[in-house]
Every structure is written in C-alpha cells, then in structure tokens.
Design a protein around this nucleic acid. Structure first.
Length: 922
RNA sequence: GGUCCUGUAACUCAGUUGGUAGAGUGCCACCCUUACAAGGUGGAGGUCGUAAGUUCGAGUCUUACCGGGACCACCA
C-alpha cells in the first residue's frame, strides 16, 4: 500500500471495478430480498448535498444488507421532471436562439428536450457513481422510458375507467409564469407586506354606500356579490339590496349574508369574486353566484375587464385604485401583512383561475394509505412524522394531475373526431368528454390516424409517474418475475420534504394497484444545512457543492465560485466575509469516502444535518488513521502465514482478550444500530473503537509482542472485521485495504458482514485491562502535570496493599514501561515502602504510582497538583456522602445502585487518604 | 389557529428503560517515539434555555414560559 493515503487514487481505481456492468446485480441464487427503490433525481440535476445524503444512507443500507447475504437490489433511475426540465430548455432556447417554445412548435421543442436530456442526463448518474452508489445500474430507469410510459398510461386508463380520474371545472392554482395548473402541493405560502385597500360600492337607488376592504382591488372587475356577517348590526338593513358596480353599472351585485365573514376584519364587508378566490368560490357555490373570469392565462385582464383589458394584473391594480380614487370611491388603505400563494416553480403569484383539468379522487386512497401506516403494515421512522402523514391523508383533496406543458406523459385520452363533429374541446362539458372520448394505453392517433382521433393536449404531473415508481420499474403492468420477487421494497429512504409529493402518492397508488403498500419502512432523513443551520441555497451564497468537499477547494476559488451564484449584490460582501470566516483554509479534499462517512456521522434521526467542515476534516483524518493502521500491520506481519484466530486462542494474553471482547460487542452494537437506521450511532461506535481502543491501546501494546503468532492473528482478525464493518460507510478505502489483507479473497463489497461471537466477550478481561490502563494514565499524568521532561525515561515504583495486586502488575511491566516511558519499575507493598520526598505520586483506589525524580521535581508544582486532585475527590465524595446519608435514598434506591454508591465511597475515600498521605510526605 | 422538531463545553453534536454528563473540532502545554504531524501524550472548559412539579434522585418524565426552526390551515 502507498505510504500516503490518497483518496482520489483509491477512489478512481475502485470506481472502475464498481462500474463493471452488473457488478451490483442482485445475486440470483439467494432469496430473502432487500430492495430499495432509489428516489429518481431530476434528469437535469447536478449533484447537491441532498443527493449526497440519500446516496450515502441508502448505500450504507444496501451494502450492509448485501453483506449480510440478502438478495439486494438497489434500483436507480432518473425523473423527467416536467416543469423543471421544460423550463431549463426553454431558457436555453431563449438565450441561444431568441425563440419561444411556441415559435418552434410542440414537436420540435420536445425533440430539443430529448436532445438536451441525452446530452446532460448522465451527469447526475456519473456523480452518484463517484459517490460509490452500489446500485444495479443495468436496471436504470427513466420515467419517460417506453415501458414506464406504458405503465403510466395503464394506470391512467384504469383509474379513468374506475371513475377515479375525472375531468372537471374547478378553481385551480394557476401559475401565470409557467402557464400551467399546479397541484396544491406545488404552491408555497409566504408572508408579504401589502395594503388593505378600502373602497365603496353605492347601494342601488339609495344614497347609502358600503365600504369593502381588499388586498386585490383589481379583482373587483369580477365581483358578483358583497358579503357581510348575518349578525353584523351595521349592515343588517342592507342585506338583500343591490349595489352598483362603478365600471359595469348593469351588473347585478347583491349584498348577501354569510357566517364565514369575519366581523372584526377590515370593514366587515367583503367583495366576492367567485372566479378568482378559493373562499369566494365556495361562497359562490352556496349562494349560486355568477362567476366572471377576468384574467387571461398569462395574468392579464381579459375582455371582461372593459377598458382595463390587456393590462397586467399588477398594473391593473394600480390603475383601478387611481380610478376609484378619482371617482371618489376610495377610502384609504391600511398596511397589512398577509400570506400570498406563490408558485414553487416560477416564483410568481398564483392566480386562482377557473379551469377544466383532470383530477384524481383521493379520499378513499388516502384513507387506505392512512390505514396501512396506522395498522403497522408500513412503519414511519422517525415516528414523529406519523402525525403529519396522518393529517395529510385524512384531509386530502383531489389531485390536479393535468399540466399545460409539453414535456411529460401526454394524457392518454383520445377524442373521436367524427363524434366531435367540429366542436372545440374546450367547449365540451365534463359529461361530453366522457361520451366522446376514449382512454387508451394505445396511441390511437398512430393507429387510426389523425383524421379519426386527436389526443388530449395536456401532460401529466411528474409525480403521477413517480407515484408508480416502486412497481413500474419492475415491469408492471406485466406480472413479471421481478415484480413477484422485489415488490414490496424494504424501505423508502428519502427526505421529509417530499412526504406529500411522492411518499404519500406511492403509498396510495401502491395499495391501489398492487394491493399492498410499496415498502415496509419509510425512513425520512433531514435536510442538509450549512454549518450554522441555515438552509443551503445559491442565492444565499452558502451552498456547499459536495464535489468541493470531495476534491477540496481553496478559499479563493470558493469565493470566486460564490460570486457566480445569484447572490443579491447588497449582501454579497457580507456573504464573502462569512465564507472567509467559515473556511479560512478553504475546504480540504475529503474524498467520496470522507464525505460519506461525515454525512453518516452527522445524520442523527430527526435532526438536520449541519455540514460542519471541521468535523468533516476530523473524519477524513480517521480514514488516514485506518490506512496507516493497516500499513503498520502489513509491514510487521512479514511473509509467514497468519494462523486462524481459533488456533492461537489458548495463548491469548490479556490485551488480546480485551480487544477481541470489545470487538465482538462492537459488532453487535453496529448491527443493531444499522438495523434501526441509526447511522450516526453506528459510525460513531466504529470510530471510537477503531481509533481509541484498537489503535491507541491495542496496537501500542501489540508492538511489544509483534512477532508472536497470537498478535499476528489478532491483528489480522481486527483488521478484517473492522474493514468489513467500515465498508458500508466508506466503500473505496475499505475495498483497497481488503485486497491487501492476508488471506482475503474476492471483494469486500460481497464479503460477509461480521457476526458477533459471544464466546469472545470477556468482561473480566475488560475490567482487568482497565486496571492496566489506569496505571499507565496515572503515570503519564504525573509526568506531564509535574512538568517533567517528556522524553526522559524515569524510574518508577508501583505500590499496592496486597501481593495479589502486585502480582497482577508483574505480568505487564514491559507494557507499562513502554506506554508510560519508564526506565524501570519496582513493585512494593505499601507497608514496606516509603516514597522519597522527591517523587511524583498518583493514586487510585488500589495502586500508587511513584515517579522517582532526584533533582527533577518542582516541589511547589507537585504540591499544587496533588491539592487540586484532592479537592476534586473531596467534592465527589461529599456528594456521595450526602446521598448515602439520605434516609430516603437508602431505603428506596434499588440495592445495586446503593451497592455501587457504597463501593465508590470506599474507593474514593481510600484514594483521598493516599493523596493526603502523599501531600504530607512532600 | 393546528402539528412537529429543537435549545447540553467556544463551535457541531452524542447521551438507549430517571442513578449525577461524553465525542469531534477548536484552545493550552509538551513531544518529529521507527503505521500515521491528516500523528502522540496530558490538560483546561458545562448552574444540560428558564421556572415549578413528580421522585430518595431529573440532561432524561410532567406543566408553564422564553428562544430557534419546519410543515399544514387561514386571513377579504
């Protein structure tokens, strides 16, 4: 192995192996499948930390279960991501050719997108491979692949024929930016400062007027009623009367009473625009009000708006306010902070708009999906998300699945031109659509010609195809062998942010089409944030590119890169200062293994992942440690064959027994943690064990007997087991180490995950070893705290009360000499020894360690050290005595706790006596 | 308005059924000890957000309050 660990070299080498076609195909001969369906990233995507996190966590699970012998399938893919992709290509088109998609036409535009996808779609896949994702890439699926498209059509047709998909006119969330309808989940709500504008409507045939308040004055063009609360004394006489619209005097606008109106808010009188507000729409239904649509699809005033026609909605707002002012109807305005709906796609204000769209009935499917979790068929981890899931499923509304886009699965509804007899599709009633159309999985236009059929223009919401992912990827609707074996999957691992978008819908469709939920567990990971817990975003300038963590980046490059992000100029200087503070040295290269290990370490359940670079650096150092520990062993093992551990078992010494005991306990802990999705606990345990126990203690002691057969066997065992334990977290470096270990064949990827062997667990050896550790630490401490020369080997004496205690030490004099840097050791009974004045003494309950320091010791420093130690012990002892003196404690505490306290009291008081004695001797 | 998460060392986090606080990084001191300076050894540093309650005993359970965050609903 190279003397220096270089992540890049190792990772490039092993990536080639992992990349071999079918390398991670599930083993055909084994049963007991373990399946994860990879959440398909957008085909337009480039790797961000969210991807890095899910790849890490899922790959840990996959590698863990694969090594445990399960028939492991990780099925990868990419998503066509309707709006996102279309928008990207539209932008390119505008930038490069100054054309809109409408100018080049649907067919040509879709062709452009395909071209783009073929050119750039592999990026994200390549990046996931660089992270070591052990997916079965030979099964890679794209949501627009012919087989998946067929599944989409099939699902649509079935739901249509079952009456669960319907076409209807509803008030939908219209995005004037992308010019399509959106589902409720695609709408964000933000708080914004605005104004509550007040204006008067004149009561017909009267001098009276009624003042309404609104944040959207322009919608008054579509007002068809005024509503007041029936209990409102101010307006009680006006109910039933009509008002005059200032711009459309012929329109009938009645004052109606409805309990939904809040007496306290505004003026207590609400203008009602049933065609452009969800509440008003509902009120319109109750009172049979006329709906007047006043906007065009791109958010301008339409022909219903009279002189305002053609104005943008925001310009119209201004103009109408001015005109009302001029007419004397305006009554001032109040500032208001209110929630507005914006498109998560374009960022534009959502315009509620009456529109004919396709919907899926959700109530029954929602109930079934709720039941599946409720009765434990599917488990949500962490369980805290259960309530959120329940609430969504039980309050679910119908899902608007049609999108006015060109990129996606075109809705498989075909109209018979003959029956249509020249009528426009947009004029058809819902009932007529049913009668004149046919939903088919076949392309009827291709089959019968464009003279006979035309197809629905709209495409389906991206999430419709994603909802089928757990089974469409396995060949559904065909009853394939794969479907039988690999459905349902073991766990869905994904971010909580797509719980509604994706998880919920897979649950519903899985149950509906396959008869059982698509996964046994749902594990929801948290968001990756920056070191300070802020959401990472390019416009905040705090987004860390995972490839920069892998390859490293200098501060200068990082600053330069951030300047290319869309950070508002106003905050840019401050952002750059922040970066200089957070990454004074830039970001060191940690490799994919380092990034993975860090993400796993930082993944506490139900807690955000804060990507703190200093911690990442710590874990990268750990990989270096593993590398060097292995090198050490390999260099010292020599050429002679290493005996199997069982053969040397009878000759094991204390430190061997100790480390093997710990090893076998650690195996159990890690297995348990990983089985419970406790990634952080599992990796933390490994880290502590390997570095502290294996490297700092065992290897240091093993150096004394490095030639012995036992040590050679133990070392190999330790490395073999820990390499496999580490493998799920850092596959590259462990694979490299694995090939270098003596006696190992094949790949670490397919090696057996270690099993805990209880016969090696030896608590007595552990506690004896602890005694040895304590003595060594006591001597080290005395040496350093007394400001003694660090390298000078000193003579030492160890004291105890009984010969048995001394005999125990006798076997480890070499170890103590080496680890505590002593020149010689004498063992004496306390009764037979008095320490010379010039000595540094430390004590525990059993032993005194004495460093003999003729001419070296600073008496004052020594006195100070002992006094400090004494104070600490007295404080502890005081607490113990308090508790033991408490009658309630003595009578009510469980016996073992009481016993423990008493033992500790004796321990500490003995220690105190020793120190006092030592102090006197000085 | 509803739901959920969160507050522990300077920073980022562990802390499983209540038994008296740990890690990494940083800091201080000393060491280039032949696997590793991406290292070793020792050390300093915490009234566990605040208050009350339950208990012999609370970081852990209960309640209230304060702070940070997320989601859902709603506001004309």
């Amino acid at each position: 192995m190279d003397p220096k660990y270089d992540a890049k070299t190792v990772e490039l080498k092993w990536q080639q192996t992992f990349d071999q076609p079918g390398f991670f195909k599930p083993n055909a001969s084994k049963e007991d499948p373990y399946v994860i369906m990879m959440p398909p990233p957008n085909v337009t995507g480039v790797l961000h930390n969210g991807h890095a996190l899910f790849v890490t966590l899922q790959d840990v699970l996959m590698r863990f279960h694969r090594m445990k012998g399960r028939k492991a399938l990780w099925l990868p893919g990419t998503d066509h991501a309707g709006i996102a992709t279309q928008t990207v290509v539209e932008r390119e088109l505008a930038k490069n050719e100054y054309k809109t998609r409408r100018e080049i036409g649907r067919e040509a535009f879709v062709e452009r997108i395909w071209k783009w996808v073929k050119q750039n779609g592999a990026t994200i896949v390549t990046q996931m491979k660089q992270l070591g994702a052990s997916a079965d890439w030979s099964r890679h699926k794209f949501t627009l692949d012919p087989d998946l498209s067929h599944a989409v059509n099939e699902a649509f047709v079935r739901l249509w024929n079952e009456g669960l998909i319907y076409r209807g006119e509803r008030l939908v969330n219209w995005d004037p930016g992308t010019q399509t309808a959106l589902s409720n989940e695609e709408v964000d709500h933000i708080t914004r400062k605005g104004e509550l504008f007040k204006f008067a409507y004149k009561i017909k045939d009267s001098d009276e007027q009624i003042i309404v308040a609104t944040t959207r004055p322009e919608t008054m063009l579509g007002d068809t009623a005024i509503a007041v609360n029936p209990k409102d004394k101010r307006y009680i006489d006006l109910i039933g009367k009509f008002v005059t619209h200032p711009f459309f005097p012929e329109r009938k606008i009645q004052i109606i009473a409805d309990p939904m109106v809040d007496l306290e808010f505004g003026t207590g009188a609400v203008k009602i625009t049933p065609a452009h507000d969800h509440n008003d729409f509902a009120m319109g239904e109750r009172h049979k009000l006329e709906r007047i649509t006043i906007f065009t699809l791109d958010g301008k005033i339409n022909q219903q708006g009279g002189v305002y026609q053609g104005l943008d909605r925001f310009a119209a707002r201004q103009k109408i306010k001015e005109d009302l002012e001029a007419l004397g109807f305006a009554h001032g305005s109040d500032p208001i902070e209110h929630n507005v709906s914006i498109s998560s796609r374009s960022g534009e204000d959502i315009e509620p708009l009456l529109s004919r769209q396709y919907f899926v009935s959700m109530v029954d499917m929602g109930k079934q999906a709720y039941d599946a979790v409720h009765n434990g068929e599917t488990r949500i981890v962490p369980a805290s998300w259960k309530k959120t899931y329940d609430h969504f499923m039980l309050n679910i509304q119908d899902w608007c699945i049609s999108r006015q886009l060109w990129w996606g699965h075109r809705i498989p509804v075909f109209y018979d031109l003959e029956k249509l007899a020249g009528r426009k599709l947009s004029d058809l009633s819902d009932q007529e659509v049913r009668e004149l159309s046919v939903a088919s999985t076949e392309d009827l236009v291709a089959k019968h010609g464009a003279q006979k059929f035309i197809q629905e223009k709209d495409v389906l919401d991206t999430w419709f195809s994603s909802a089928l992912w757990p089974f469409s990827t396995l060949g559904w609707p065909n009853q394939t062998e794969d479907l039988k074996i690999f459905y349902p999957s073991a766990v869905l691992e994904t971010g909580f942010d797509i719980l509604f978008f994706w998880v919920a819908r897979m649950m519903m469709f899985g149950i509906h089409f396959m008869g059982k939920p698509p996964f046994a567990d749902i594990y929801l990971h948290a968001m990756v944030r920056d070191a300070h817990g802020r959401k990472m975003s390019k416009s905040l300038g705090n987004a860390i590119d995972p490839t920069d963590v892998i390859d490293g980046i200098t501060l200068d490059d990082l600053l330069a890169k951030t300047k290319t992000y869309p950070v508002p100029a106003k905050i840019l200087p401050q952002v750059l200062e922040g970066l200089k503070k957070d990454y004074p040295e830039g970001i060191p290269a940690s490799g994919a293994d380092g990034l993975r290990l860090s993400l796993a370490m930082l993944s506490g359940q139900g807690r955000d992942v804060k990507l703190a670079i200093p911690r990442v650096s710590g874990y990268r150092a750990f990989l270096n440690k593993i590398w060097n520990a292995t090198r050490f062993a390999l260099m010292r093992l020599g050429e002679e064959p290493v005996l199997p551990l069982e053969q040397v078992r009878t000759n094991l010494k204390l430190e061997d027994k100790y480390i093997l005991s710990r090893l076998n306990q650690v195996i159990g802990e890690i297995d348990k943690s990983l089985s419970n999705y406790e990634f952080s606990a599992a990796s933390e345990t490994l880290y502590q064990f390997f570095w502290t126990e294996f490297c700092d203690w065992y290897i240091e002691l093993a150096k004394l007997r490095i030639e012995s057969q036992e040590v050679r066997s133990v070392l190999v065992e330790l490395l073999s087991v820990s390499t496999r334990l580490l493998h799920p977290f850092c596959p590259f470096v462990t694979e490299e180490i694995w090939t270098n270990l003596p006696g190992q064949k094949g790949y670490c990827s397919f090696a057996e995950f270690p099993k805990s062997d209880a016969s090696y667990v030896d608590l007595e050896a552990e506690s004896e070893f602890k005694k040895l550790q304590e003595i060594i630490v006591m001597i080290r401490n005395a040496r350093q705290e007394s400001n003694l020369p660090a390298q000078k080997k000193l003579p030492g004496v160890i004291l105890a009360d009984t010969q048995a205690d001394l005999d125990f030490i006798a076997g480890y004099q070499d170890a103590i000499r080496r680890l505590a840097l002593l020149e010689s050791i004498e063992l004496k009974l306390r009764s037979e020894y008095t320490a010379p004045k010039l000595s540094a003494i430390n004590s525990n309950s059993t032993y005194d360690t004495v460093l003999l320091l003729e001419g070296l010791l600073d008496l004052g420093a020594e006195k100070q050290r002992l006094t400090k130690e004494l104070e600490k012990i007295q404080k502890e002892l005081f607490g113990l005595e308090q508790r033991l003196g408490n009658a309630g404690f003595v009578s009510k505490a469980p016996p073992e706790v009481l016993e423990q306290h008493r033992a500790q009291q004796i321990d500490l008081s003995q220690k105190r006596d020793r120190i006092e004695n030592n102090l006197r001797n000085l």
